[in-house]
Design a protein around this nucleic acid. Structure first.
Lengths: 213, 213
DNA sequence: AAATAGAACAAACATTTGTTTGAAACAAAC
DNA sequence: GTTTGTTTCAAACAAATGTTTGTTCTATTT
């Protein structure tokens, strides 16, 4: 039965942007159904209730995000500097830049900053694999650095990337919408990679001077 | 009349944590008044309506944040590296670490990520002065770097700091609440300053090699 | 063609929500 | 002690909200 799945999709596509912008509680089922051109009872029929629809929207967003911008799988021998650049570009493509539909990344950011019960699954299936990939690259770049320090480096990198999504409205307000339009993925990825590699190089040099443990 | 101001404060203190955690729409006036041990009509009497109370809560949070952790005013001749370290520590103290009451920083972060009509004032009085202070320091550290590039460096720095507030729930989930407790202001400020100064040094060297414009 | 199961729909339901109202309590000024 | 202006309070109001219900429509099966 394809019609039921289509309806579910229509509801998800209508609810997604609203959930992403206003959150679960502030979004009403009436507005969702209006936008989806569906009857008011559709949500309770096709999903159990509003909460369940929200949960499925998060799952759907994570799945699409993952499928569209997969975590790179590098051939053996790829230099770790190259891997870092790829990772940053991938990460920016996931969260910072607006693909259509834009609500996927927005809803995931909401889950990051204001977790709901859907967050545990979101971290397990979406955040952690991403974080592990970066940790692997950093283990290559900073083999002799303690685990705690390496984590801080990882957070420095994802923090730089996420900032352009998380604080986007304020950044636009700050530098003007005109300049913000120049912040494409290539520019940002180039800057963040360069910035981070410089710092990593110095850390590596220092830890090497102190000697590998 | 001190009693009216006290009542306003009681309402603000009760509403603040709720607004910070759930946002304007998801927080009900009944819960606020319950927590403040006040009559249901108190909000509409002392503030015009719920929106106004929210707006005042943001204003109050920004004011307290500013007063408790002021932007440093360095004596002439302070080395810019030292200024950067001070700025990072100040910024982390403002947003990353929990002072009591914790809702001040949380509510401001909500305004950052999900702006309301209160945002314009928030950016003008709170965000921009902070950003200008950092820009000044960076002009000293990177005098020969184009404005755009310097802005990206600024965002890299505040992005690193903000990440520990914005993504705190997920970071805790990721590294465990035990390790997260180690992330004190000193540790984070040290790391972020070191990380950023390394990158800045390389940028300065490169721009100097190309020659000042 | 009749029967059946899945989907859509309008209407209604019980709560919840922000706000208003008019009276009561209170404190200060005359 | 009365008056005046301010603050508190219980009750009520209208609008909005998530969910349920019983019916109608539709397409597939028998």
């Amino acid at each position: 039965m394809t019609t039921a799945d289509e309806t579910r999709q229509r509801l998800l596509d209508a609810a997604g942007p609203l959930f992403a912008e206003q959150g679960l509680k502030a979004t009403t089922v009436r507005v969702i159904c209006d936008r989806a051109d569906m009857n008011l009872a559709a949500i309770n029929y096709h999903f159990r209730d509003k909460k369940q629809l929200y949960h499925e929207a998060v799952r759907h967003a994570a799945h699409c995000c993952d499928a569209r911008v997969p975590i790179p799988d590098w051939p053996a021998g790829t230099p770790p500097e190259r891997k870092l650049r790829d990772f940053v570009a991938m990460f920016l493509n996931r969260v910072a830049v607006d693909h259509e539909p834009a609500w996927h990344a927005q809803l995931l950011m909401r889950e990051l900053t204001h977790p709901t019960p859907a967050c545990a699954e979101f971290v397990r299936d979406f955040v952690r694999p991403c974080f592990e990939a970066l940790s692997g690259v950093l283990r290559e770049l900073l083999p002799d650095v303690p685990e705690l320090k390496r984590r801080l480096v990882a957070f420095s990198i994802v923090g730089q990337c996420l900032h352009y999504r998380v604080a986007r409205p304020v950044i636009e307000h700050l530098v003007g919408a005109g300049e913000f339009r120049n912040y494409g993925v290539d520019l940002l990825a180039g800057h963040i990679t360069e910035f981070s590699l410089a710092a990593i190089d110095r850390l590596a040099a220092r830890s090497h001077r102190k000697g590998p443990s």
